[in-house]
Structure formats: structure tokens, C-alpha cells
Design a protein around this nucleic acid. Sequence first.
DNA 1: GATGCATGCAAGTGGTTGCTTGCACGGCGC
DNA 2: GCGCCGTGCAAGCAACCACTTGCATGCATC
Lengths: 215, 215
Amino acid sequence: MIDSAHHPTGSGASQPPSREKLIEAAARVYATAGFRGATTRRIAEEAGVNEVTIFRLFGSKAALIDAAIQHRAAVQPFETVPLPETPRHPAAELTAWCETQLEMLRERRSLIRQQMGELAERPQVVPCASRALNPQAVELKRYMRRLYEEGFVEGASRRRAGRDEEAHAAGAMLMAALFGDAMGRDMMPEMYPQPPERAAALYVGLFLRAIRCTS
Amino acid sequence: MIDSAHHPTGSGASQPPSREKLIEAAARVYATAGFRGATTRRIAEEAGVNEVTIFRLFGSKAALIDAAIQHRAAVQPFETVPLPETPRHPAAELTAWCETQLEMLRERRSLIRQQMGELAERPQVVPCASRALNPQAVELKRYMRRLYEEGFVEGASRRRAGRDEEAHAAGAMLMAALFGDAMGRDMMPEMYPQPPERAAALYVGLFLRAIRCTS
DNA sequence: GATGCATGCAAGTGGTTGCTTGCACGGCGC
DNA sequence: GCGCCGTGCAAGCAACCACTTGCATGCATC
């Protein structure tokens, strides 16, 4: 029934469908069951292919799941909206940016949770997991530096070291707020009484006031 | 069921050692390996007792691990330093409080990570996991309300709803900053360049400025 | 000494896991 | 027609899993 079409090679544009189906199924199963819970039988069933195909195409379960995780990490971050090169309306710009961050984090929520849980046993997932978050933090810091340079920050005349320290902490705090919101909203709803669509604007408002920025 | 007590050694305050040894070993193994990875053989070996003892004392592996998790969650939160009833030096008081929070979170880091990972498959751990964090958030909110009442917040005259919304978000943001610091410092060190002992003071400083509090 | 109890030890249960093997089928280029 | 290759199917393997059973042992109380 599922025989979707064409097939491999030729001009090699699309992979043999089994490979792709397995990678996506593995990502789904892993996100809800973790490495140990993602059995080859379950992944194969989810993908609608035979179990042996996993070993023929990937060699081992670990290789398949690594491929799946890396696929997920490699495909999405490029969709991120960059912050503008020169700030004009910090509140609006940051809010929009934070909203896409939140969306991204919420979408990957269960995968990120699994990776956090398996961090102790499979430390090789660390670079893969943080690779998704790190460029975002860098982007935020670049934008903050421009906020200082363009005079959006009032009391920025203090000594450089203290300013940097505070700016780093503020950036980390904003990222943590987004992360915590995306991760914690379903586990502890009483801690997040506001509707999710208000979250970004609220965090950004607090963030800008914390760094003394005239929004 | 929990008839500890009985028996030996005269005034016998101490439980039969096997039970306690197993609970602590289970907590350790679970924190690094998760539910599926925490095999009864491994726990028994870690505890230095025979594997059958697990089933004689707890009936099943799940019961043992539940007991271990609940034991960890039940024992520690009482050590928390409460925030003062009437604020005097918000910055100092909050910083001290945040430092104990950070300490607690860092100590339980791997256990919390595991619980997050298994949240999708074993949702019954949710209340147990959030029970550790929730009272802290409540305590923070009580303290914040007193900050408003005692006149520590400058522009608090705005409409009530907006103030509450912002205060909630600010509280969530501070808790998230602590959580993210405790969880992320080892996974993404470049995001936390400051030494860990400065963290609490920095977050509190930003937090107080965000809610317009005169520290 | 006898009884009760917690524990250790050895063996074994049925089930699941990752992975392999052997074989058959069908579409493709030659 | 004829290989080639990707795939499905059935069977099976050794290892591991949670859990059980039966028996021996040590210790404390009676």
C-alpha cells in the first residue's frame, strides 16, 4: 500500500524511502520511549517496514537512533528567525524572536527531555543536544551587544566587566525562562497561569527592564 | 506496610539495613541509568545485598524505585531555608534563598533529568517531581506579595491584573533561571561563563530590577 | 535447645531484546 | 533472459530481563 513511488538513485535526489521512514519513526519512538524503550521491533512497526531492514540499512539500533537524533538536530535550527542587525524596536523584535524559540522548544520538548535523561549514560548526545540551543544563545548575545552599542541601555556606563557579567547572566536568564516555559508548562501548570501566547512578551518585558533597556 | 521498627538491637531505631541500603542504591542507580537501566541485579549489586531481597522486601522493581524516588523527594525539601516573613533586605534574603535552591537542584540534577526523560512513559512521576519544586515557587510568590505590600516595589500602582501577571512571570523566570543554571551548567559551559557561586546574586539582581524593586 | 525471621545462594521460569541467517519475491538495467 | 539489489518473511540465537522457588544459614528470643 505504501509503495511511494520511485525509487532510489537515478539522479539520487531522494533516498530509498525505507531509510527515511525508519529515521523519522526512530525519532518519534525515541522521543517518547528513550533509547532503551525504543526497541527495534517497535521502530520497525512504527515505520511500517520489516525489522531486519534496520540492521541491513544502519547496522545497529544505536546507529539508527544516532542518525535519527542528528537528523532532527540538523534540520530544524535553520528555520530560526534571526534578530535584526541593528535594533530598532527591541521589545517587538525580541518578542518575535522568543516566540519562534518557544515554538521550537515546545515542538522538540519530548526529544529534549529524553536527551536530558540519557545524558548520564550516553554523553555523546550532549554536543548534539546543546548544538541546537547554543547558536540561539550566541545570536541573543550579539543582539544584546548591539543594544549597548546603539545606546538603548541607560546605565551602561559602569565598568565593563560588571556589565558583561550582568549581560551574560541576563541572556542566560531569558533563555532559561523560555526553556523552562517550554518544558514545565505541562508538568506544573500552576506555575504558568498565563496563556502560552503571552509568555514571550512578558519575559522580554522583564528582561529589558532588568538590563535597563529603553524598549 | 512500612512497619519499620521491629526488631533487633535493643532500642533499634535503625531499620533493617537491607531496606535502607536498597532504597539508596536504587536512587543512585536510577539517577544514572533510568528506570529501564536500573536492573534489579545492578541495584542489588550496588546495595551489596542479594537480588531476591528486593522482591522479598518490595515485591517488585517498580515498587522499589517508586519508594526510592519518593524517599528522595520526601527527605530533602524540609531542609529549605524559608524566606523571611517580612522583607528587610530583599537582595540579600533572596540571594541566600536562591543559593540553597541552586544547591538543592544541583544535588538532585541527575535524578531530575531522569524523571524528565521518563515523564512521557511513566506520568505518575510528575506529581512526585513537581512536588519538590512547587512549594518553592509558592514560597517565592508569598515573599513577592509581601514585597509589594511593604512598599518595596516602586511602580506598583498600576492595575492589579497586569501587576499579578508580571509578578507571576517574574517568579517563573527566576525559578527557571535557577533550574537552567543547575541543569545546563555542565552541558553547555560556554553559556555559563560566570563562576557558579556568583549565579544566585546575579539572577536576583536582575530579577529585582525587572520587578522594579528597590533592593 | 527450639522457634522465628531476615537473608544468602543456586537454579529456573517465561518473556523480551538486539541481531543473524536463509530464502523468496519483485522491479530494474543489460 | 539474467543478474543485481532492495525488501519481506520466518525462524532462531544468545543474552538479558523481572520474578519465583526451595533450601541452608546465622542470629535473637523464648
